[in-house]
C-alpha cells in the first residue's frame, strides 16, 4: 500500500521585528509629514483669514478667481457667487486645487506613507490589521483625479490672467509695472502649469491611452515631453505648492503694510 506523506505547512519565515532595516527609513516620511503639515496649516490660516489678500494689482493665488460678491474689488474679482457669503472667497474655491492635489498620484504616495503609514517605508510593516487600498470606498474615489485635472487647468488660466494683470501699475493702472509681486505671480503661474501638465492624468489623456503611437505623431510627441516632465512630478508638486504659499505670504505681508511696494520698473 502506498503511503502518502503530507507536505509540511507553507509558512513564512517567522521574524518578529517590524523591519530589519538599519538605514534611517523613518526620515523621509517624517520630513514629508512635517512639510505638508506646515504648509497645510498656513494655507488653512490664509484661506480663513479673509483679509490682506489683495495688494494693488496683486491677488493671492488662494483667493483667485475671487467669485464671491464679498470679494475685495480688483481685476480678478468677478462677484459671481451671491450665496455662501459666510464663507471666505478662498474657501469657496479651495475644493478645486485641493482636490487636484489630494488625488494626485504623487501626493497619494506622500500621505499614504507619511500619515497613514501604509507603509511608512518599503519593507517596514504597516500598523493596520486590514487593507483594501483603493479597491473600494472611500479610496476608490481617488479615481476622480482626471476631472480635477481639468478643474486645475481652469484655475491655471485664471492665475495666468492674474500674472498678466500684475504688470499693471497698482496706483495708476498703466501697464509696464514690474515688481516683486509680479515676479512671484508669474513664477507661480509657470510652476502651476508645469505641475499640472506633468501629472499622470495629463500624460494619459495626451497619449498614454493610445495603443498606436505611430498613428498619432503629434500626440506621441506631446506624450514624450510630458513623460519627461512626469519624471520630476514630485519635485514640481513641492516647488509649486511652496511657491503658492510664499506668494500668498508676500502679498499678505505687503497688504498688511509690513514692507513697502517692492518694484523694479
Amino acid at each position: 500500500m502506498t503511503q502518502v506523506t503530507q507536505g509540511p505547512a507553507k509558512t513564512r519565515a517567522q521574524i518578529q521585528a517590524k523591519t530589519l532595516r538599519t538605514d534611517p527609513w523613518y526620515r523621509s516620511p517624517r520630513v514629508t509629514a512635517t512639510g505638508l503639515t506646515i504648509i497645510v496649516l498656513y494655507l488653512l490660516f490664509a484661506s480663513f483669514a479673509n483679509t490682506d489678500y489683495i495688494f494693488g494689482s496683486y491677488i493671492s493665488p488662494l483667493y483667485s478667481p475671487c467669485l464671491a460678491t464679498t470679494c475685495t474689488p480688483s481685476d480678478s474679482s468677478f462677484f459671481l457667487v451671491p450665496w455662501l457669503t459666510w464663507l471666505t472667497p478662498a474657501i469657496i474655491i479651495i475644493g478645486g486645487p485641493l482636490g487636484f492635489r489630494f488625488t494626485c498620484y504623487y501626493y497619494r504616495k506622500a500621505y499614504y506613507r507619511s500619515f497613514w503609514r501604509s507603509p511608512a517605508a518599503c519593507a517596514v510593516a504597516e500598523p493596520h490589521a486590514r487593507y483594501r487600498g483603493e479597491s473600494r470606498l472611500p479610496l476608490i474615489i481617488q479615481n476622480v483625479h482626471r476631472y480635477f485635472f481639468w478643474i486645475a487647468i481652469a484655475f491655471n488660466i485664471f492665475l495666468t490672467y492674474d500674472a498678466v494683470v500684475a504688470f499693471k501699475n497698482p496706483y495708476t493702472g498703466a501697464w509696464g509695472h514690474f515688481g516683486v509681486g509680479t515676479l512671484m505671480l508669474v513664477v507661480n503661474a509657470i510652476l502651476l502649469w508645469i505641475y499640472s501638465v506633468s501629472c499622470h492624468a495629463c500624460r494619459h489623456i495626451t497619449g498614454g491611452r493610445l495603443k498606436h503611437f505611430s498613428k498619432h505623431p503629434v500626440r506621441y510627441k506631446a506624450w514624450t515631453v510630458i513623460s519627461r516632465l512626469n519624471n520630476y512630478h514630485m519635485q514640481f508638486a513641492w516647488v509649486s505648492l511652496t511657491w503658492v504659499t510664499l506668494t500668498d505670504l508676500y502679498i499678505r505681508l505687503a497688504a498688511a503694510g509690513v514692507f513697502g511696494h517692492g518694484r523694479w520698473i
Binding site: 498620484y105 497619494r108 504616495k109 499614504y112 506613507r113 501604509s118 507603509p119 518599503c122 519593507a123 487593507y131 483594501r132 487600498g133 483603493e134 479597491s135 473600494r136 479610496l139 476608490i140
Partner: peptide, 9 residues
C-alpha cells in the same frame, strides 16, 4: 489593481 496605493516600493 485597486489594492495598489502607488507607494512605489
Amino acid at each position: 489593481l485597486g489594492y495598489c496605493n502607488i507607494t512605489k516600493c
